Amino acid sequence: MSTAGMMPPAASACPKIIQNRADFLLAARARKQGSAAMMVQGRDRMDGDPAIRMGFTCSKKVGNAVARNRAKRRLREVARSTLPELGRPGWDYVLIGRKDVTASRPFHLLLDDMRYTLRKLHGG
């Protein structure tokens, strides 16, 4: 069996992280779609850069620092798994964790939630 199918995606295919507050605020004014485990905000940057960018946030409503960090780790992994294939080039996506759900929901259901929200955001 070849290991070529088990290689991680190329660095250019991996989404970049949003770190600017201004970019988070722009995404907050764009399209939104909720699911059982998360809220996803998405916007087309229209800047000519084909990179997909992603950001994550969990308020204190999600829980203490341990719970928020766990929720964000899970959201990061869901985004890494789905955005390279389902995200659109030139878009920013911000994933927002939900109280008591994001950290405890089975991972395969988180993936389904992410696929659902992306389909809805893009009108599919």
Rank of each mutant, 00 (worst) to 15 (best):
Arg73Tyr: 14
Phe24Leu: 07
Gly42Arg: 01
Arg29Glu: 08
Val101Arg: 12
Arg70Ala: 10
Val78Cys: 07
Ala65Glu: 12
Arg29Trp: 03
Arg73Trp: 14
Ala30His: 08
Ile96Cys: 04
Glu85Leu: 14
Arg45Ile: 04
Ala103Trp: 07
His108Ala: 15
Gly42Cys: 08
Val78Thr: 05
Ser35Arg: 01
Ala51Met: 10
Asp92Val: 00
Ile52Asp: 02
Arg31His: 14
Gly90Cys: 05
Asn64Phe: 13
Gly63His: 13
His108Ser: 15
Arg70Pro: 03
Lys32Phe: 08
Gly87Ala: 08
Pro50Ile: 01
Asp92Tyr: 03
Met46Gln: 14
Ala51Lys: 08
Asp47Tyr: 02
Asp100Ala: 15
Arg45Ser: 01
Pro84Cys: 05
Ala65Arg: 11
Ser81His: 15
Leu26Ala: 11
Val78Arg: 01
Asp92Gly: 04
Met54Glu: 06
Asn69Gly: 14
Ala51Ser: 12
Gly63Ala: 12
Arg80Cys: 12
Gly63Trp: 12
Leu75Glu: 00
Ser35Gly: 04
Ala103Asp: 07
Pro50Tyr: 04
Lys32Ser: 07
Leu83Asp: 04
Arg70Tyr: 12
Pro106Gly: 07
Leu109Ser: 10
Val78Asn: 01
Cys58Ser: 15
Met46Pro: 00
Val101Glu: 08
Asp47Gln: 06
Leu86Asn: 13
Asn69Glu: 12
Met46Cys: 13
Ala71Asn: 09
Ile96Thr: 12
Pro106Trp: 08
Arg73Glu: 11
Leu86Val: 09
His108Ile: 11
Val94Leu: 02
Val94His: 01
Arg88Ser: 06
Leu109Pro: 05
Ser81Val: 11
Leu75Asp: 02
Ser59Met: 07
Pro84Asn: 07
Arg53Glu: 02
Arg53Ala: 07
Ser59His: 10
Ala28Thr: 07
Ala103Gly: 15
Arg98Phe: 01
Arg76Cys: 05
Pro84Thr: 04
Gln41Lys: 08
Ile52Met: 09
Leu86Ala: 13
Asp47His: 03
Thr102Met: 00
His108Thr: 13
Pro50Trp: 06
Leu83Arg: 00
Ala27Phe: 02
Leu109Glu: 12
Gln41Pro: 05
Ser35Thr: 07
Arg31Ile: 09
Pro84Leu: 05
Ile96Gly: 02
Lys61Trp: 12
Glu85Asp: 15
Phe56Met: 12
Met54Pro: 05
Arg45Ala: 03
Gly34Ala: 08
Asp47Phe: 01
Ala37Val: 04
Thr57Ala: 10
Ile52Thr: 06
Ala30Asn: 03
Gly97Lys: 08
Pro89Leu: 04
Asp49Leu: 04
Gly34Phe: 01
Lys60Ile: 09
Ala37Arg: 00
Glu85Pro: 13
Ala51Asn: 09
Ser35Trp: 00
Pro106Cys: 03
Arg88Trp: 03
Ala65Gly: 13
Arg68Ile: 09
Arg80Gly: 09
Leu109Gln: 15
